[in-house]
Simulated scan of single mutants.
Amino acid sequence: MDKQQLMASIRSGMPERRWQHVQGVIDTSIVLAERFGADPVKAELAAILHDLAKFWPVERMQEYVREEGVDLAVLDYDKELWHAPAGAWAAVKDYGIDDPEVLDAVRYHTSGRAGMTLLERVVCLADYMEPGREFPGVDRIRELADSDLDAALVAGFDSTIRFLLEKGKRIYPLTVAARNDLIRTTTNIIFTAQGGN
């Protein structure tokens, strides 16, 4: 299956508004990959795939997460997280994708994790800040992303964590681990990320 066929197949499984989001993530992933030294071809592929399971029935997402078996703990958290690991398994099972870097970028694009690869960080950040996204703090994330991938990603995780706290929801441990790991491994990130919304 070539890229155009893959895109057509994935597009057919989601509303047009979500496909516009996917296109924004594709474009943003390529820009960020080129800016920060990730592979733009892999970034594009991961971005094409990242939301392929987003509009599946919950039961199908759950089935794919269980089949893959990489992180069953996600099933104890918000269903909004399930499409990422389900999509990673669908990329393998339904589309024959076998690049572990691309699959991990799909798998962790919503939650993050400690030790994220450069490609994972690029795709995760692109999902936060693509041009169609509008939420408090997104402009600050975009501003940080001009020069500091990790500071921008910490700001994105901070935004997610704040939102979940305000809604009284549980926070997926991988997201906290991702944020903490980025702060631990990157100098000057605390000052940069807290520069304001």
Rank of each mutant, 00 (worst) to 15 (best):
D146N: 09
L119H: 06
P136C: 03
I10G: 06
Y128S: 04
T192L: 14
R140F: 02
A177D: 15
Q5E: 13
L52I: 01
R60W: 01
I26T: 07
N188F: 06
A177Q: 15
V65D: 03
R121E: 15
E34H: 10
M61W: 00
T175K: 11
A73V: 03
A8V: 00
G24W: 04
S111V: 05
P136I: 02
L153C: 06
P57M: 02
V22G: 05
V70D: 13
Q4F: 00
L75M: 08
A43N: 09
E68W: 08
R35T: 08
M1E: 03
R35W: 06
D148A: 03
Y77A: 11
R184D: 15
L52E: 03
E44F: 00
C124K: 11
A86N: 12
Y77H: 14
T192Y: 07
R35P: 06
D146Y: 00
V31P: 05
P131C: 02
Y108V: 06
A47E: 10
L32E: 08
Y172F: 15
E80H: 11
C124E: 12
V123C: 08
R11I: 00
D76N: 13
L153K: 06
Y77T: 11
L165K: 15
H50I: 01
D158Q: 12
R121Q: 15
L165P: 04
A33N: 08
L149Y: 02
G196V: 08
A155G: 04
L182R: 07
L45G: 04
G196L: 13
E130D: 11
Y95I: 03
R184T: 11
M61L: 05
I97Y: 05
E67T: 01
Q20D: 12
I97L: 10
I161M: 13
G132P: 07
L118W: 01
L81V: 08
D104R: 12
R133Y: 06
F163W: 10
S12K: 07
I189A: 07
M129A: 08
W82M: 10
Q4M: 00
I26N: 07
D2N: 13
I30W: 09
K167W: 14
G87L: 14
D127Q: 10
E68I: 00
L174H: 12
R184F: 09
R18E: 15
T28Q: 15
A43M: 08
G196Y: 09
W89Q: 12
D139H: 03
E134I: 01
A155Y: 02
I48L: 09
L165F: 07
G132M: 09
T186R: 15
A43S: 07
A155K: 14
G112I: 06
L144E: 04
R140T: 04
I183E: 11
G132L: 12
V31N: 14
E166N: 15
M61Y: 00
M7F: 00
E63I: 00
A46C: 09
A151G: 14
D148R: 06
A53H: 02
E16P: 05
R179H: 14
I141T: 01
L119Q: 08
S111C: 09
L118R: 11
L153H: 05
R11C: 04
G195P: 05
P15T: 00
D76R: 12
Q62C: 06
